[in-house]
């Protein structure tokens, strides 16, 4: 039995040890915003925030998250009230198919919290663990840059 908090809600569930945190969030809790693109740790689509740090939810078992606080894309803004980062993604067309987007956002949140992101190079470096096949990254960089410049948090 594990107990953990996801986006402020406490869940208790019986899980098989081999269940990945990604599959747990998606299929046990129905939080399908977190995507799975490789299960090899490379694409970053599955990125969530665990105890304040962005991590790959495909490289973490749900049992390891017992007692943890998790934030997923569903915990950012809502459809009617997008977070500043989400809004900036929309304004700058930083998503096309939207599959990498939850991972990009969660990585972006962690980067904005931890780094000054003074240059675009820094942003690109920070995003290098998140593959996007659609956007060529340019608008993603721009969207994050705009949030840095606005200085009003993630």
């Amino acid at each position: 039995m594990i107990k953990l908090t996801v986006n402020g809600i406490v869940y208790e569930r019986e899980v098989e040890p081999r269940l990945s945190l990604a599959d747990f969030l998606r299929h046990e809790l129905g939080l399908t915003g977190t995507h799975v693109g490789c299960e090899q740790g490379v694409c970053g689509a599955c990125t969530v925030i665990l105890n304040g740090d962005s991590v790959r939810s495909c490289l973490c078992f749900a049992v390891q998250a017992d007692g943890a606080e998790i934030e997923t894309v569903e915990g950012l803004g809502s459809i009617d009230n997008l977070s500043p980062l989400q809004k900036s993604f929309q304004e700058h067309h930083a998503l096309q198919c939207g599959f990498c987007t939850p991972g990009m956002l969660m990585t972006g949140v962690d980067l904005l919290r931890k780094y000054p992101l003074a240059t675009d190079e820094e942003i690109r470096e920070g995003l290098s663990g998140n593959l996007c096949r659609c956007t060529g990254y340019q608008h993603v960089v721009r969207a994050i840059r705009a949030v840095v410049e606005a200085g009003n948090g993630d």
Partner: peptide, 9 residues
């Protein structure tokens, strides 16, 4: 070494 999310873990 790797990327932020991997370095976090």
């Amino acid at each position: 070494v790797a990327h932020l999310a991997i370095r976090n873990k």
